[in-house]
Amino acid sequence: SGVNQQQLQQLMDMGFTREHAMEALLNTSTMEQATEYLLTHP
């Protein structure tokens, strides 16, 4: 699906929903950016 499943699982383990985590990974290129994205786009 174009996203790193390991990163997706890590974000879900942090408490984010699958949909939200996927959106973040699709819009960013690193785990750090994805986390930042999730925190700034709740």
Rank of each mutant, 00 (worst) to 15 (best):
S1D: 12
S1G: 12
S1V: 13
S1W: 05
S1Y: 07
G2F: 11
G2C: 15
G2K: 13
V3C: 10
V3Q: 07
V3S: 06
V3H: 06
N4W: 08
N4P: 08
N4R: 09
N4Y: 09
Q5F: 12
Q6P: 06
Q6N: 11
Q6T: 11
Q7E: 11
L8S: 01
L8R: 01
L8V: 07
L8N: 00
L8T: 03
Q9H: 11
Q9S: 09
Q10L: 11
Q10S: 08
Q10W: 08
Q10A: 10
L11G: 00
L11K: 00
L11H: 01
L11I: 05
L11M: 04
L11W: 01
M12Q: 07
M12S: 03
M12T: 06
M12D: 00
D13A: 12
D13L: 08
D13W: 05
D13F: 06
D13I: 06
D13V: 05
M14K: 05
M14V: 04
M14H: 05
M14W: 07
G15M: 03
G15A: 03
G15S: 03
G15V: 00
G15N: 04
F16R: 02
F16W: 08
F16T: 03
F16M: 02
F16V: 05
F16G: 03
F16D: 01
T17G: 14
T17Q: 14
R18L: 08
R18W: 09
R18K: 12
R18I: 07
R18N: 05
R18V: 07
R18S: 06
E19H: 13
E19R: 10
E19S: 11
E19K: 10
E19Y: 12
H20W: 11
H20S: 11
H20D: 09
A21R: 00
A21G: 04
A21M: 01
A21Q: 00
A21H: 00
A21P: 00
M22F: 08
M22E: 11
M22A: 07
E23P: 01
E23V: 08
A24N: 00
L26A: 09
L26T: 08
L26C: 15
L26H: 08
L26F: 07
N27D: 03
T28V: 03
T28E: 02
S29I: 06
S29A: 11
S29P: 05
S29D: 14
S29L: 09
S29N: 11
S29K: 12
T30R: 02
T30V: 02
T30H: 03
T30S: 13
M31Y: 13
M31L: 14
M31V: 07
Q33F: 03
Q33R: 04
Q33A: 12
Q33H: 05
Q33K: 06
A34S: 01
A34M: 01
A34I: 02
A34N: 01
A34K: 01
T35N: 05
T35S: 05
T35K: 15
T35E: 14
T35M: 15
E36R: 06
E36M: 06
Y37S: 09
Y37I: 14
L38A: 05
L38D: 03
L38Q: 02
L38R: 00
L39V: 09
L39A: 15
L39S: 14
T40F: 08
T40M: 12
T40I: 07
T40D: 13
H41L: 14
H41F: 12
H41E: 10
H41Y: 14
P42Y: 15
P42H: 15
P42F: 15
P42M: 15
P42T: 15
P42Q: 15
P42D: 14
